[in-house]
C-alpha cells in the first residue's frame, strides 16, 4: 500500500479493526513515516480529549423509575398487541353500553312515572272514598230515577204494544199487498 492508502487506514489501525495482515503492513509503514506517526499520535491524543468529556451520570435513576413504576400497571406491548387491546377495549365498551341499556328502566318504571302513578292512584282512592255518591241522598236519587224510568216505560207505546195483537184498523191495507198486487194497483191508478 502507498502512503495515502496507509494514512486512510490509520483510524482503523488505532481501533484495532484491521485484518492482521493489513495491521502488519500499516505498522511497517509507520516505522518509516514520520507524517503518519504524527497523525496517529494526534488521533490518539484527541481520543483522550474526547474521553475526558465523560462525566459521572447525574442521579436520574430515581426520576426514571418513578415514572416507570407509575406506568408499570400498563405493561408495554407490541403493535399487534396494541391493536388487540384496542379491539378488546372496543368490544368491552360495546358490552358495557349494552349492559347499561339493559339496566336502564323502561319509562313506565322511571321514578317520575311511578311517582305520578302513585299520586293519581291516591287521588282516585280519595275521590272514591270521599266523593262517591253514597248514603241516603244517593238512594233517593236512585229511587227517583228508577221511578221515572218505570213511568216512562209504562207510558211508552212501544212497550205497551208488546204481546198485544194489532187491530184491523191499525193495519194499512197497502202493507198487506205483495209486489204483483202493488204493481196492478199502480197500473190501475
Amino acid at each position: 500500500m502507498n502512503h495515502q492508502r496507509i494514512q486512510n487506514e490509520l483510524s482503523a489501525y488505532l481501533d484495532d479493526e484491521l485484518s492482521p495482515a493489513t495491521q502488519e503492513q500499516v505498522a511497517a509503514h509507520l516505522r518509516g513515516c514520520t507524517e503518519c506517526r504524527q497523525l496517529l499520535a494526534t488521533f490518539q491524543r484527541n481520543r483522550r480529549h474526547i474521553a475526558a468529556l465523560a462525566r459521572p451520570v447525574p442521579p436520574i435513576k430515581a426520576a426514571v423509575m418513578t415514572q416507570v413504576r407509575a406506568q408499570a400497571a400498563l405493561p408495554p406491548v407490541t403493535v399487534s398487541q396494541r391493536i388487540g387491546i384496542l379491539f378488546r377495549n372496543a368490544v368491552l365498551s360495546l358490552r358495557e353500553g349494552a349492559q347499561a341499556l339493559k339496566k336502564t328502566k323502561p319509562w313506565v318504571f322511571q321514578p317520575i312515572t311511578a311517582g305520578a302513578s302513585a299520586v293519581l292512584t291516591l287521588a282516585l282512592t280519595v275521590g272514591f272514598l270521599y266523593l262517591y255518591p253514597t248514603g241516603t241522598h244517593y238512594e233517593e236519587a236512585l229511587d227517583f230515577y228508577f221511578g221515572l224510568h218505570t213511568e216512562q216505560v209504562a207510558d211508552s207505546p212501544l212497550s205497551s204494544n208488546v204481546g198485544t195483537p194489532l187491530s184491523s184498523d191499525m193495519i194499512n191495507p197497502i202493507d198487506t199487498l205483495d209486489d204483483a198486487e202493488l204493481f196492478d194497483l199502480y197500473l190501475e191508478e
Partner: peptide, 27 residues
C-alpha cells in the same frame, strides 16, 4: 421481564446503561 411489565428488571437496565446513555447525550 420488562416486556412483561416488570419494573424491577427495568431498574437493572437503567443502572447498567445510565452512565453510557448520559455520556452519549452529553457528548
Amino acid at each position: 421481564q420488562c416486556q412483561n411489565g416488570d419494573a424491577d428488571a427495568m431498574e437493572v437496565l437503567v443502572i447498567r446503561y445510565q452512565q453510557w446513555a448520559y455520556n452519549i447525550a452529553y457528548g
